[in-house]
Design a protein around this nucleic acid. Structure first.
Lengths: 233, 233
DNA sequence: ACACTCAAAATTGTATACAAAATAGCATGC
DNA sequence: GCATGCTATTTTGTATACAATTTTGAGTGT
């Protein structure tokens, strides 16, 4: 994941807070106060405030005047919305990337695929390694968007991926294998390397829909389970 | 334009600053200091800082540590990028809206069309009235995105529209008539009212491309003219 | 036991003071 | 005359003090 911490405290706090939220250390729905974070990171409230402001703009927290901040809870509906947009953006970015990719870009994409494959085939791998595989898999999409050459598209796609990242992670880590996703990634990269924009775009859109369905199925199962528990009590 | 000023100073400052930038009162490329704005709006630097932070996140200003803020200059390339994304989002939003619009929504869209028509046919109208026509025309797209039911899509589209608004305005205000845009808007609304999602989407995408070409032509002409001046001197 | 009031605690909103860094302008040396 | 280095100014970065508001909880009256 691209660490872009400038030298200012505000940016450090922003990165730190974002990481805590995205990785679920601060769970969705929990209330966070400026003071908590300020004390925890040993800085004053000012940089924390600014970090919160930016996170609110990112949609990762929501804050109401004089009532503090709450880590945004992502319900199934928001997830659907996000992936609907992601299908559009990712599909288009992949089309553009297929037309724009240089040899260096293609090598980079292939290297990421190889890294995924390596991480996937480690015997008795740890959670950390599964986590890394997911991370590289998501990063692949970021890099494709970057290759597309449309900086604004890249920025917006990164924003959406950040928002969904925690959910994708917490849900998908339950599975042991993502062979389908790996194969799909490989196909997309192939199409990009072949310069087949139309095919790359189609594959990318299908891939996003597939990921969405995967996570939705798990979210639904969890929801059903909780309903079952509630009814049983 | 939707005024969403909460009761906090920060939000007022944000709205005020955004309005000043979007309308070009603070021209692109100009440097703005926190103190200027603080004095101008008679508040302390704190809320101004936070407003700047949010504007930076919106992409309306760019700030580098200890060097202040600069109103983002939108070059032709960024404009192309923005409209490329807008075509995707607006097209999709319009498709969704055609499927989701209630009778009340349809009435609202038709009322906006009528308002455009009224403003366009005022004899000897002032710049203010031309300005209003453009504003309602852009708002139409915001409302369509809202009707789509995808809140995230709506938010992202509004962000892009804000970023482009100043450029669209300053360029298009040179023209006296936008009959083509008005006709296209009417067709789109018709398709939405008829529930024809596919046609509505296609029309919307074509409309965005048309608007883009209009503005690009003017931007290009201006650029050519400045090159001509530079070479003549 | 329940509801209502009021006060205290917690928390953000705003202002301001001070520190750190960058820029600009001036003076000095070559 | 030009470059270089230093200082003075400007401007943001951070901390902190205080104000405003919301929440919480205890205490009292019915």
């Amino acid at each position: 994941m691209a660490k872009e911490t400038k030298n200012t405290l505000r940016d450090s706090v922003y990165s730190a807070l974002k990481a805590m939220i995205v990785t679920g250390q601060i769970p969705p729905g929990s209330r966070v106060t400026e003071n908590d974070i300020a004390v925890r990171l040993n800085v004053s409230r000012t940089p924390v405030r600014e970090a919160f402001n930016r996170l609110e703009r990112d949609g990762l927290v929501t804050g109401r005047p004089r009532q503090g901040y709450v880590v945004t809870e992502f319900d199934i509906n928001m997830f659907r919305e996000a992936f609907e947009i992601r299908e559009l953006l990712d599909g288009h970015a992949t089309e553009l990337a297929a037309a724009a990719a240089t040899e260096k870009d293609k090598a980079r994409l292939r290297a990421m695929l190889a890294e995924c494959e390596r991480l996937a085939t480690i015997p008795d791998r740890t959670t950390r390694e599964k986590f890394q595989e997911l991370e590289v898999g998501i990063d692949l999409h970021r890099v494709i968007a970057q290759i597309s050459g449309n900086a604004m598209l890249h920025g917006m796609l990164c924003g959406i991926l950040d928002k969904c990242q925690h959910y994708v992670w917490t849900e998908l880590l339950w599975l042991d294998e993502w062979k389908i996703a790996r194969d799909e990634h490989a196909e997309i990269v192939d199409a990009i390397c072949a310069g087949d924009a139309s095919r790359a775009g189609t594959l990318a859109r299908a891939h996003v829909r597939g990921s969405r369905d995967n996570v939705l199925r798990l979210l639904q199962a969890k929801s059903d389970y909780q309903n079952f528990l509630a009814r049983a009590s």
